[in-house]
Amino acid sequence: MLVVNQVSKQFHDKKKGAIDALKSVSFEVNQGEIFGLLGPNGAGKTTLLRIMATIMQPTAGTIQVNGYDVATQAAGVRRSIGFLSGNTRLYKKLTPVETLRFFGSFYDIPKNVLEERIEAILTSLDMHEFKDRIVEKLSTGQVQKTSIARCMIHDPAVYILDEPTLGLDILTSRTIIDFIKQEKAAGKTIIFSTHYMEEADSLCDRIALIHQGAIVQAGSLEELKAATGKTNIRDIFLWYIDGGAGDSHAL
């Protein structure tokens, strides 16, 4: 479903010069799995997910999402994905219904189908109470639901979620987690980044550990536990960072 092959990304800073945000990153995500990208702040998670979502271009390497290349077939990628991050805000002066219509209109969904889908999403996420109130006047939880709805409107095959629970309280975070589980059950592929180890532990089928722009190790939780002798992701991550493995390769 998703193939990342030797992807690098370099930024140029006037003072610091060239900055390698990603260094030859490679991994694959299978259809229907939840794949976690774990790492500290500045590891390169957001950069990688932005490239997957075609918001940025890689300096080198390729990424295929649902059979489309991010560099040459960006439109196909965007139709296949739902992208959500801590930075993907909503338009404050639109209502949830208007938001869904606005975003839905870009996916070539027939109007009647779009309206049916909007209605179904409003019901499934219990949004009827606030659907006609502008986003500016919604609570954090209501905004989060609207963001999720926005992501789902076109029924994407792949979800790319960048630290979706960052800064949220426990109840609002649960909405996100329930959404992830629900979409997995529906056969969707989900890639999400986090630095909350417990989240990755409870949700992910496979995990990639990323540090300073490179994949340190990738595999299922069981594989990583067996390889390191550690019992939780935090210790596993620190074991690798402290030089527990030489090469970065998938188990």
Partner: peptide, 12 residues
């Protein structure tokens, strides 16, 4: 307002 990133992820 961080809505630009949202816009860029759309098929537009």
């Amino acid at each position: 307002r961080e809505t630009l990133e949202t816009l860029f992820s759309l098929p537009v």
